[in-house]
């Protein structure tokens, strides 16, 4: 059964690239354009992995991450945070809030796909 990935970002072009990359890696892909949409998508059926942008309108990535980690039934969902703000304090904050990885934009596509596969236990 294919793993499901939810891509959350407000930049259409970045969403487009992530969607392409994840599909090519064999995952099922769902898209949300801001934090609120992301949480709504989780309510249905929680995905296995979240690619979560930090700077978004409505709810930002930190808040989404925090809320997800407050719900035990969503604990299985892995989170990779993507951010254009690469300062150390922010990385610490993301990890402290329960993100599994913290990736700075622009990122290497190979590495990102590699990390996603690792987290989902796909060879």
């Amino acid at each position: 059964m294919g793993k499901r990935v939810l891509v959350v970002d407000d930049e259409p072009n970045i969403v487009m690239s992530l969607e392409f990359l994840m599909k090519r890696a064999g995952f099922e892909v769902q898209v949300a354009r801001n934090g609120r949409e992301a949480l709504a998508a989780l309510e249905g059926a929680p995905p296995d992995l979240l690619l979560l942008d930090v700077m978004m309108p409505e709810l930002d990535g930190y808040e989404v991450c925090e809320r997800i980690r407050q719900r035990p039934e969503w604990n299985a969902t892995k989170i990779i945070m993507l951010t254009a703000r690469g300062r150390d304090a922010e990385r610490q904050r993301g990890l402290a809030l329960g993100a599994d990885r913290y990736v700075t934009k622009p990122f290497s596509t190979r590495e990102l796909v590699e990390q996603a596969k690792q987290l989902l236990g796909v060879a």
Binding site: E11, N13, I14, S17, L21, A84, P106, F107
Partner: peptide, 12 residues
């Protein structure tokens, strides 16, 4: 970084 991200991703 935002446009750069798109550029790098699609280039790769």
């Amino acid at each position: 970084r935002t446009p750069l991200t798109s550029i790098r991703s699609f280039s790769e």
